[in-house]
Design a protein around this nucleic acid. Structure first.
Length: 598
RNA sequence: GCGCCUGUAGCUCAGUUGGAUAGAGCAACGGCCUUCUAAGCCGUAGGCCGAGCGUUCGAAUCGCUCCAGGCGCGCCA
C-alpha cells in the first residue's frame, strides 16, 4: 500500500520505526476498509454481545472533552438487543472489561462516555500517519480500476471566467481524489471547435495570425452584438458553419486557427491553477461518426425519431421514457442538413463509454441537467451507457449572472493576477530574506490557494455570489490560512533539526488541544472515503480548514521546542509532522501546495 | 405553467445515511507580539435553521403544502 510513494525526496527523511503491534492494527483495520483507532473498544463490546456487529457501534465525539474522550451512542445496538438505550448504556459501562487504555467509563442517559489513556491512542494514530505518509487517507478503493473524467470543455471563444473555471476546479479535484484513491484516471477535454458561436467569431476575425488571445473576448462580444443587429451577418455564420461541416478545407483551417489560438490561451490560464488534461477530443471529429447510424436505427425501431414539418430531424423522447411534455423533443439536425451540437455529442459520449473505464464521469454546469438526461435516454435506447454526471451551479455577480457574450464577467486570469499581486505584497513583508524568484513562487502558490479554496469549499450545487473582497481575503476561512498553519509547522520542524525522533513508548499527549487534534487527524480517511463516494471535494476543504484551526489552538497551547520533557517534545514534534502530512494530503486533493515559508 | 437545485447569525458558508447545548469566517466591540511566523489567538455580541403541517422517543436533516432565489423546458453550445 505504500508502494505508490510519489515523492522522490520521501526516502531521505527519517522514518520512525514501527512496533509489531501497531503494524498489525493497521493491517487488520485496512482489511475491513476502516481505519478505526477505537477498535479495541468495539472488540470488547462485541465479545460480550455477540448479537451485535461492528456497524452497530458508532463512536462519535462527545459534545465536549469534559464529558469524555470518545462517546458511543446506544440507540442502534439497543434496538437490536431490544433493550432501552439507557439500560444498555449502563450495562456497557459496568459489565464489560476494557483494556488498560480505557481509564473510565461513564454514562449520560443513552450515551456511554469513555475516558482514555490518550497517549496510547495518540501514538497509534501518529504512527499510522507517519507510516502511510502521502498515502494517508487513501483506502485504495480504485485499485486496478480505470476512471475517465471529462471536465471544463468550454467553448474556445474567449478567456475563461471564474464561473466556467468552477468546472475546471471541481473536475480537477475529482481527478486528484480518484487518483489518490487508487484509480488510473484519464482526463478528457471536449473541444467545441464548431457551432454557431465559433462561426461568428471566425467571421469577425479577418486575420487570425495577427491576433492575440486577449483580443478575442472583445471580438466575440462585438460579433454577437452584430449578429443580433444584422440578420445577414447571422446568416453568414450559418453558411460558414455548413461549409465547415461539409469539410471545406479552407473553412476548416480558418476555424482551426481561431479555436487553436483560444484553446492554447485557455489552457495557459488553467495551467496557472494547476489544471491539466490528458486527452483532447475535438467536436469536429464526430460529425460523421459511424456510430450515429446505429443510434438512429435504434431510435427508428422504437418509432422515436421523425422529420418535422420544417424538415428537422427530431427525437420524440416520450417514446423512450421521458414523461413530462417539457423537454420532450430533441433536435438532431437542422433543415439544411447540418447537425446540432447534441447529435455530435451523442457520438462523443458513446466514444467515451467504449473506452472501458470503470468510472465514466462528466462535470457539467447545472444548465446541462435536462440536456444530459435527454442524451442519456437516447443512449439507453441504443443500448449504450451514459456517463455519471456531476453538476455545479453558477457563480453569480451582484449584478446578476455572468455572460461572456455581454462581456459581463470576472475573468479567471484577472482574478489570479489580482490575487498574486496581493499575495506578493504580503510575501514581500514576511520573507525579506528570500530570493525574489522564491518569493514569486510563494505568492503564486498563495494566490492559487485563495482562488481554488474559495470555489471548492462551497458545495457544488450551491450558487455562489462572487465578491472580490471575500475571494481575495487571505485570513479567516481561506486556503492561505491552511497554508499558513503548514508554514508554522515547518518552522517548528526546521528549528528542531533534521531528524524526527522515534515515537517514544511513553507518548504524552494528554492535553485537550492535543487530543482534539489527534481525533481530527484520525478521521481523515473517513472524510476522503465520503468524498470519493459522493464525488464531492468540498468536505475535504472543510476538513483542511477544521484541522488547521484545531492545530492552531494546539500551537498556542502546547509548546513543542520548549516542552516539559524530552518525551513530550518528541510526541508533540511527531504530532506536528503528522498534522503537516495530513494537511498536505488534503490540500493536494484540492490542487493546493503549501509553501515551506510564507 | 412544469421539472431539477438552493434557502442556517447583518454578510459568505459548514453541519443532512435523523441523535447530547446548531458551528466557522467576514463585518462590530474588547483584549494579546522580550516566548515555535499576528496571513494568528482569546473574549463579547449576534439564530422562530424561509413559513406551516406531518412522521418519530428525538427533525436544520425525512414527507407534504406554500413562499423566495438559481437553472432548464424543439433548428444555442
Amino acid at each position: 500500500m505504500r508502494a505508490r510513494s510519489q515523492e522522490p525526496c520521501a526516502a531521505r527523511e527519517t522514518r520512525p520505526s514501527l512496533t509489531d503491534d501497531i503494524e498489525l492494527t493497521l493491517l487488520t483495520s485496512r482489511q475491513e476498509g476502516t481505519v478505526n483507532p477505537f477498535q479495541s473498544l468495539s472488540d470488547a463490546i462485541l465479545a460480550a454481545f455477540p448479537a451485535l456487529e461492528p456497524g452497530d457501534l458508532v463512536f462519535a465525539q462527545a459534545p465536549n472533552l469534559a464529558v469524555g474522550d470518545v462517546a458511543l451512542r446506544t440507540f442502534e445496538p439497543a434496538k437490536k438487543l431490544k433493550l432501552p438505550p439507557p439500560q444498555l448504556a449502563t450495562r456497557l459501562a459496568t459489565e464489560i472489561t476494557y483494556g488498560p487504555e480505557v481509564r473510565a467509563v461513564t454514562t449520560a442517559g443513552p450515551y456511554v462516555n469513555f475516558r482514555l489513556d490518550r497517549g496510547v491512542f495518540g501514538r497509534r494514530i501518529v504512527t499510522q500517519i507517519l507510516a502511510e505518509r502521502e498515502r494517508f487517507g487513501s483506502r485504495d478503493s480504485g485499485k486496478g480500476k480505470k476512471a475517465l473524467i471529462e471536465h471544463t470543455s468550454i467553448n474556445p471563444n474567449a478567456s475563461p471566467h471564474v464561473g466556467r473555471a468552477r468546472n475546471a476546479m471541481i473536475g480537477d479535484s475529482l481527478v486528484r481524489l480518484l487518483r489518490f484513491d487508487g484509480y488510473d484516471v484519464e482526463v478528457h477535454y471536449y473541444v467545441n471547435d464548431m457551432g454557431r458561436q465559433i462561426a461568428l467569431l471566425v467571421l469577425a476575425c479577418q486575420d487570425p495570425s495577427s491576433l492575440t488571445f486577449d483580443q478575442v473576448l472583445q471580438i466575440y462580444v462585438d460579433a454577437n452584438a452584430r449578429a443580433e443587429a444584422e440578420p445577414e451577418f447571422a446568416a453568414q455564420g450559418y453558411d460558414l458553419l455548413a461549409k465547415m461541416e461539409q469539410g471545406d478545407a479552407d473553412t476548416k483551417s480558418r476555424f482551426h486557427a481561431i479555436t487553436g489560438l483560444c484553446l492554447k490561451g485557455q489552457l495557459a490560464v488553467l495551467a496557472r491553477l494547476g489544471v491539466s488534461y490528458d486527452v483532447f477530443d475535438h467536436e469536429s471529429d464526430y460529425i460523421k461518426d459511424a456510430r450515429l447510424a446505429q443510434v438512429l436505427e435504434a431510435l427508428r425501431a422504437k418509432d422515436a425519431v421523425f422529420t418535422d414539418q420544417d424538415e428537422r430531424l427530431v427525437v420524440d423522447l416520450s417514446k423512450i421514457g421521458h414523461a413530462p411534455e417539457e423537454g420532450r423533443y430533441f433536435v438532431l439536425m437542422r433543415a439544411n442538413g447540418s447537425s446540432m451540437y447534441g447529435f455530435r455529442d451523442i457520438a462523443y459520449t458513446i466514444d467515451k463509454s467504449e473506452r472501458g473505464a470503470d468510472i465514466n464521469l462528466s462535470v457539467f454546469g447545472e444548465d446541462h441537467k435536462l440536456y444530459a438526461q435527454q442524451i442519456a435516454l437516447i443512449l439507453e435506447a441504443a443500448g449504450k451507457t451514459a456517463p455519471e454526471t456531476v453538476y455545479y451551479s453558477y457563480i453569480l455577480l451582484k449584478a446578476g449572472k455572468m455572460s461572456t457574450r455581454q462581456g459581463k464577467v470576472v475573468l479567471l486570469s484577472e482574478f489570479l493576477d489580482e490575487a498574486t499581486a496581493l499575495a506578493a505584497e504580503r510575501v514581500e513583508e514576511q520573507c525579506k530574506d528570500l530570493a525574489p524568484e522564491d518569493r514569486k513562487i510563494i505568492a503564486q502558490n498563495v494566490a492559487v490557494a485563495a482562488v481554488r479554496f474559495t470555489i471548492l469549499r462551497v458545495g457544488p450545487n450551491k450558487n455562489v455570489i462572487f465578491d472580490w473582497d471575500t475571494s481575495l481575503s487571505f485570513s479567516g476561512d481561506t486556503g492561505p490560512y491552511v497554508q499558513y498553519s503548514c508554514a508554522r509547522i515547518n518552522s517548528i520542524l526546521r528549528k528542531l533539526g533534521q531528524d524526527l525522533p522515534h515515537p517514544p513508548v511513553q507518548f504524552p499527549t494528554e492535553t485537550d488541544s492535543e487530543w482534539a487534534l489527534l481525533v481530527k487527524l484520525a478521521s481523515f480517511p473517513d472524510t476522503v472515503a465520503n468524498a470519493v463516494q459522493t464525488r464531492n471535494c468540498a468536505p475535504i476543504a472543510q476538513y483542511a480548514l477544521d484541522t488547521a484551526r484545531i492545530f492552531t489552538a494546539f500551537y498556542h497551547d502546547c509548546p513543542v521546542l520548549n516542552a516539559d520533557s524530552e518525551t513530550q517534545r518528541a510526541a508533540r514534534a511527531l504530532l506536528c509532522k503528522a498534522t503537516h502530512q495530513t494537511l498536505c494530503n488534503a490540500l493536494q486533493l484540492l490542487g493546493i501546495t503549501a509553501p515551506e515559508r510564507m
